[in-house]
């Protein structure tokens, strides 16, 4: 059938239709994956939107090239299969054609380059002067966030106001980590011995956090090094800074008070700061002043609730392999006291 004119037409049309269906199915799957919690494709900041726009153009180009090459490969495969009586054309090339298809990739990459370079020039500008300054420090395996102008330190949950630029200085205390909040910004590495920068202007406040995760392999618990970014209306953010600037909520119940004593007795104070608890001034581990108001523990590895806090304290490595917090072999009694104390640190 391939030899007849209509047979050839059928092959070509059939191949085009099949490739179109395949391309469309892939497109649907991409669109479906874009609509997920840690998506890279639904921007919520000015800069992420710029990148997405460049990405969109490149993506469509990629789709066109994919469709074209797949369709031609399929058509040639079906059209030029060996058949009795068919002979191969003998030629070595075609200069005109070769010039044309040298130009095709050139044109494609030039089209790619335009939005790319304009996005680079936009994101490489200095952040506006009124940007909120944040220092993000990577540790094995958690994130520390400092607000130098506000005098705040927190861990694993970054709070920022909507509509104002956030300028993040990236540092690392040990190995290379990477700061990546897909919906807010592409990743930039946290490089020990260097100070990297990125900035973004969040455009959408919402109660749920933007999910984020370390993107550079950093050792055994790389998979468990996650963080969350809360983008809030300015008023909510100001309220948050006030409450975070405050000392820890003093324990009120007897058991929580006993917990504070236990917190010192078990040596927790050596690594953790709890503002308002003069004994607790360690800086090796995360600042726990407002631990009770965080949504997760262990750098996003589990939800923060009494059962999980207890599990964590009983054996951190069990919850998060390689966690640098030592297993303190705490007694049941000590756990009974520590859990309500920590939970109460609102």
């Amino acid at each position: 059938m391939g030899s007849s004119r209509s047979g050839r037409a059928a092959i070509i049309i059939g191949s085009l239709v099949a490739t179109a269906i395949l391309t469309w199915a892939i497109f649907v799957a991409f669109a479906d994956s874009a609509n997920t919690p840690q998506t890279t494709f639904i921007p919520a900041s000015v800069q992420a939107a710029l990148v997405r726009d460049a990405y969109m153009i490149i993506f469509i180009l990629a789709g066109v090239v994919f469709f074209a090459i797949m369709a031609v490969t399929l058509i040639f495969t079906l059209l030029y299969r060996e058949r009795p009586g068919q002979t191969a054309l003998q030629f070595h090339g075609n200069s005109k054609l070769e010039v044309v298809w040298t130009l095709i990739p050139v044109i494609i990459v030039v089209i790619m380059a335009v939005p790319t370079f304009s996005a680079i020039s936009e994101t490489s500008k200095a952040p506006p002067a009124d940007a909120l300054k944040v220092v993000a420090i990577g540790h094995q395996w958690w994130f520390e966030f400092q607000y130098p102008e506000l005098g705040l330190t927190t861990a694993n949950e970054l709070h920022v106001p909507v509509g104002r630029a956030v300028s993040v200085t990236l540092e690392s205390k040990d190995v290379i980590h990477s700061f990546w909040v897909p919906q807010l910004s592409g990743k930039v590495d946290m490089m020990p011995g260097h100070r990297n920068h990125l900035w973004f202007t969040p455009t959408q406040a919402r109660p749920e956090p933007y999910l984020a995760q370390c993107a550079e392999f950093c050792g055994i618990s790389h998979a468990n090094m996650r963080f969350r970014v809360f983008v809030r209306p300015a008023a909510d953010f100001d309220a948050w800074t006030k409450s975070t600037a405050a000392d820890r909520t003093a324990p009120t119940t007897d058991i929580a008070k006993a917990g504070e004593a236990q917190f010192a007795a078990s040596g927790c104070v050596g690594c953790h700061t709890v503002k308002g608890n003069a004994a607790a001034a360690g800086t090796v581990g995360p600042n726990l002043t407002h631990f009770g108001s965080r949504t997760t523990l262990g750098s996003g590895v589990v939800d923060s609730n009494p059962q999980n806090i207890r599990k964590w304290l009983a054996n951190p490595q069990n919850v998060k392999p390689g966690a640098l917090m030592p297993n303190l072999n705490l007694s049941q009694d000590a756990l009974d006291k520590l859990v309500p104390y920590l939970e109460g640190l609102k």
Binding site: T40, L50, V51, A54, Y55, I58, F59, A62, I108, V109, M112, A113, P115, T116, A119, I120, T123, S178, P182, S185, G186, K187, V188, A215, E216, F217
Partner: peptide, 15 residues
């Protein structure tokens, strides 16, 4: 070729 764009690569790199 998509990764040749640093902006796009910032989303793709290490993913």
């Amino acid at each position: 070729v998509m990764h040749a764009s640093p902006s796009v690569d910032a989303q793709h790199q290490d993913s």
